[in-house]
Design a protein around this nucleic acid. Structure first.
Lengths: 346, 346
DNA sequence: CGATTGATTGCAAACGTTTGCAAGAAAGCT
DNA sequence: AGCTTTCTTGCAAACGTTTGCAATCAATCG
């Protein structure tokens, strides 16, 4: 005997909670009810199936997913992790990641999966990834952004197939990643700035995250080839802080550049505002190119020329690859080509 | 006998998957392992506990959450639903909801809960809410935005305590809601516009969602009292569509207003752009007030005066109320006062 | 030294499904 | 009628934990 004494037999419970309740009502065995309601519908005669379905509706019966999933060893849940590596509060409002998350939610739903979201702060939690994977709650994991956790992710990937990461691809890495060709994006941006007449370029943002470093590298390659300069104006990624830093820089230095490549649209918008406040006109005096093509890019005045990451396709691809990995297939990483969206700022 | 024949006894499995594996390794019973690793640590002697913990680490053992949760009848998961009522694609990029989601994720994590995200399209799925609740996967539900599902939510609330909804409060409703006092927000906006000198106001956006209707109503009350007019310029909530609609309106009509209250910051930004494109200056010719105080509000040129919803507090409150409801406590709805953030646009 | 107490541990029954196997019923065939 | 074959259904064993109860053993007490 365990923790609960068996209850008195209830003749006609108003609400059927378990499959056994329903079986009693229908005068069949629990197994039959399971078959009638679950995946193996064709194994039960039409007549009994319909009776059971009617009773289920009538008594508001819902299958207990916990039990079902335990038995079937399938959870139907995909874990989505956002590691907050560099700066905890930067990412809270990171529109790009949130938008990606939205599309992932859509896509997973379409495939019948639920989405379990977890935000982790790796510094405070050594084995965040193992814990999530080993919990038995998720059939696969999507990681949004590698943050500064590249190595840990790469390590885990050896022993754990069903994981796909959003981020920059790096030669020789072992985990499957979907991301934009940031280098190419950087090239497109620099090319546009130069084509628009800029001679002295400035990269705006941090070059620490691997994605941003690649954007810078791409721009640098073009700049070198075309014989124009490319400086770096380092800022935080949070627009408020960045605005202050840009303003400070402009106060302290002569404006020695005529083209700005911002590491993200968020930074581009902040930059545009600071410039306008000082009476510098965009694009006349300074050309400006962003990155991401967030909705806001079309809403600035002048509208922002930017390098577009196709978030919808990215999300679709991540889910697609993950499902194939869950099925046991080995998959390669996927690098998506960005495109230049030309508006007014450059 | 069921589906799997029992495997040959493995003497020293490289990786302990189940608590029973570990028990065999440690030479104790599964129950003891469970106690050593689970909540009842003090029931097992220090010596055996340490031995078991060491073995667990060594063999990379992780408790199977599925089984644990089934047995304990606790899932440790809170469901978060975003019903996409009006316009499917509006919400994908709805920054406000996404930001709220971010804070909810933080707050739930702090309390040891996981977050299961589900986006539903009520039109295509009659009993979205019952299905989620009855799945046995979640201990409570947070609904982000009532969309047009007010009645269905209210209905469900009678029989299901652990649910908290973000949205507008309505007299006599039965479900527990946390939200901003939209009416007051509308008042603040109108008061500011009038104080800034506007005489003819225009409400921008749809008044169909209940939240927006309340914002309009609040503004209307002030307008009436102060003897200024308040028109409505109906738009979609998506900035791209809205921009087109605003432009169209301006082309077809004389500009008969000098103050705009936009139903959201997103719309305000779109409006500002359209005005600026036509050479109308903000705030000189037209005053503009938004709603939400999204990060973008500080980044426009001129910076947007707006009615701030305190998202962080909202998220904290939702989680707090939900936990109390899970504990069986009946809780009242909570209406948070918005504040006016005065910047340059009005 | 026997009896009482307290600390550890093992046993086995749940939690609510799913599903292989086999039995019984119905139908088809010779 | 007898024998196969095909449908339906019931039985009971899992899935991997947790936990009430009881048993064991050492320690304490009178």
């Amino acid at each position: 005997m365990a923790d609960r004494k068996p209850e008195v037999e209830v003749v006609s419970p108003k609400r059927a909670r378990t499959i056994t309740d329903l079986a009693r009502l229908a005068g069949v065995s629990p197994g039959t009810v399971s078959r009638a309601l679950g995946g193996k519908r064709e194994l039960v005669s039409t007549k009994t199936r319909e009776k059971i379905e009617a009773l289920a509706r009538e008594h508001g019966f819902q299958l207990n997913q916990m039990a079902s999933r335990l038995r079937r060893q399938k959870t139907g849940v995909i874990g989505v992790v956002i590691p907050l590596g560099h700066d905890r509060h930067q990412q809270i409002s990171d529109t790009f990641f949130m938008t990606l998350l939205g599309y992932l939610a859509d896509e997973l739903t379409n495939h019948g999966y639920d989405l379990m979201l977890r935000r982790v702060i790796p510094d405070q939690d050594e084995d965040w990834l193992d814990r999530f994977i080993g919990s038995g709650m998720v059939e696969g994991v999507l990681v949004i952004g590698q943050s500064d956790q590249f190595d840990r992710i790469d390590e885990v990937a050896d022993g754990y197939m069903p994981m796909v990461v959003w981020g920059n691809h790096k030669e020789g890495q072992r985990h499957c990643v979907v991301g934009t060709d940031n280098r190419l994006g950087g090239r497109l941006a620099a090319e546009r700035l130069i084509a628009a007449g800029a001679k002295k370029l400035m990269f705006l943002g941090s070059s620490e995250p691997i994605e941003f470093a690649a954007r810078y590298a791409g721009a640098k390659a073009v700049a070198d080839k075309m014989g124009v300069s490319l400086g770096i104006l380092p800022t935080h990624l949070n627009p408020d802080e960045a605005a202050g830093e840009i303003a400070e820089y402009l106060s302290a230095n002569q404006i020695t550049f005529d083209g700005v490549f911002a590491a993200s649209d968020i930074l581009a918008v902040a930059c545009m505002k600071v410039l306008q406040e000082r009476g510098v006109t965009v694009p006349d005096q300074i050309k400006l190119v962003g990155f991401d093509d967030l909705p806001i890019a079309a809403q600035t005045q002048p509208a922002l020329t930017t390098v577009k990451q196709d978030i919808a396709t990215g999300a679709k691809s991540m889910v697609n690859l993950l499902l194939r990995r869950i099925a046991g297939e080995g998959t390669e990483s996927l690098v998506l080509p960005p495109t230049l969206v030309r508006r007014q700022s450059a």
